[in-house]
Simulated scan of single mutants.
Amino acid sequence: MGLTLVQAWKEAKTRLEAAGIAGPVIDARLLVEAAAEATRVDIVTDPYRPLTAEQEATLADYLARREKREPVSHILGRKGFWKIMLQVTPDVLTPRPDTETVVEVALREFPEHAAWSVLDLGVGSGAILLSILAERPAARGLGVEASEEALAVARDNAAALGLAGRTALLRGDWTAGLADDAFDLVVSNPPYIADHVIETLEPEVRDHEPRLALSGGPDGLSAYRILAPEILRVLKPGGRFAVEIGYDQKDAVEALFREAGAEDVRTIRDLANRDRVVAGAKKPLETGA
């Protein structure tokens, strides 16, 4: 007799715990659900449903890969972010809950039905840009990305979410070639990990995430030195920006944006109460009396 759903989940959890995987309960459930073509509700309401031999073999493969520290998102090829589901490959950074703070900040700044433009620098899978556009039906967005492989993932995600008509994607080097005063909002999750720190990261990140999306130079701030003045250049007067930062980069990144002329510069914390997003604005045009 083959494994039942509940047996498969318990055995998967035990294997992942033994392998030292962080979050084995959730990972085990996700892998069982995918392998058995089941839902979380199925595991609760129909726990004794047997897996087929093919499903058991698929689960065994998934678990072996996870034990080698391959991320669940790469094993399954997808990852939930904000309120959307995204295709994920090794060519893009796996979207993380911390980054949803950028989306929260952006949505607070712009009303639901207003027509406005957003630029996402380093768009990756499209997580930030597509989450914003999904919530703001009158908005249009441009995503810029250096990696053609990552752009292909973003294109697929935009199409799958029905957002391709409002999403332009461009291979480029940050803001190169973009016009002055062009966007109402600029968002970015740039690489911000100091190069010497990358080798100390968990294997899921160090060995499986694209190095281009991680490497922030010797001190982790290389991208911000480029982005701060350039974001202010491409923003419309009065436009807003929100960029993700490392937990210990608040003062340095705020200073770079203030030096570039930004106003209302502040840092927002994530759900873990860590500094996560530096936000601010471009000075509005002065109006006559």
Score class of each variant (00 low, 15 high):
F183V: 02
S147A: 06
H196S: 14
L201E: 06
G165D: 10
L163P: 13
V186G: 04
G124E: 07
G141L: 13
L86K: 07
N189Q: 12
S147P: 09
A154P: 10
G124T: 05
F110Y: 13
L169D: 03
E148G: 12
D98P: 04
P210W: 05
H196P: 04
G143S: 09
G126C: 08
E112L: 11
A152C: 07
D180A: 14
E199P: 06
T175E: 00
R96Y: 00
L142M: 10
I132F: 01
E204Y: 07
G177T: 00
A150G: 09
G177M: 01
D156P: 03
V103L: 08
I128S: 06
P137K: 11
P95I: 05
T101Q: 03
V102F: 08
L93N: 04
F110K: 13
W82R: 08
L169S: 07
G172S: 02
W116H: 15
V102Y: 08
A115Q: 15
T200C: 04
R211D: 00
E100M: 13
V88A: 01
A154L: 12
V153W: 12
E148S: 14
L169I: 02
P210I: 13
G165Y: 02
F183M: 03
T101F: 01
A127E: 09
L151P: 04
L133G: 10
V102I: 15
V144P: 04
A138C: 12
S188Q: 09
D180G: 08
N189M: 04
G172R: 00
Q87P: 03
H208Y: 14
L170S: 05
S188P: 12
I132L: 10
L142P: 04
W116A: 13
L163C: 07
E199K: 14
T101A: 01
G122V: 05
A164L: 08
